[in-house]
């Protein structure tokens, strides 16, 4: 047996797997609960990239355009009725808030 083998055999025979015994749980209890600042930036970048991909590769522009056309038509239609711009604002704010909440939920599920 050469020197290299002798040392390897000696070291490998003493190599043991250390069982967890609650170590990982203790570590996770000490990990700061607040997300590091950069994770928010990373999340924002991820969502923006996903939106860009949706618009560019999945023909998102035409979908968006048709939505806008529908909204415009609806507005033009309701103009002839007793239309209150405040309703539209409330509708947009509520819709926007729901969309943001949904995106957040999806992001955390991933």
């Amino acid at each position: 047996m050469d020197d290299d083998q002798l040392i390897r055999q000696f070291m490998q025979a003493r190599r043991e797997d250390i069982s967890d015994n609650g170590f990982s749980d203790r570590v996770m209890r000490h990990i700061p609960f607040e997300r590091p600042f950069w994770t928010y930036i990373a999340s924002a970048l991820f969502i923006l990239t996903a939106l860009a991909a949706l618009l560019i590769w999945f023909d998102g522009w035409s979908v968006l355009c048709s939505i806008f056309v529908h909204i415009y038509t609806a507005i033009a239609y309701v103009k002839h009725m007793a239309f209150e711009p405040l309703y539209l604002l409330v509708f947009i704010a509520l819709g926007g808030w729901l969309a943001i909440e949904k995106i957040k939920q999806l992001a955390y599920r991933i």
Binding site: I18, D20, S24, M28, R35, P36, T39, S43, F46, A107
Partner: peptide, 20 residues
């Protein structure tokens, strides 16, 4: 997952994987 979403469960898996 841990980097982009601050996913603690993903990091917990890494801790368990490399603690020994």
């Amino acid at each position: 997952r841990a980097t982009v979403f601050g996913n603690r469960r993903a990091f917990d898996t890494l801790v368990r994987r490399y603690q020994s």
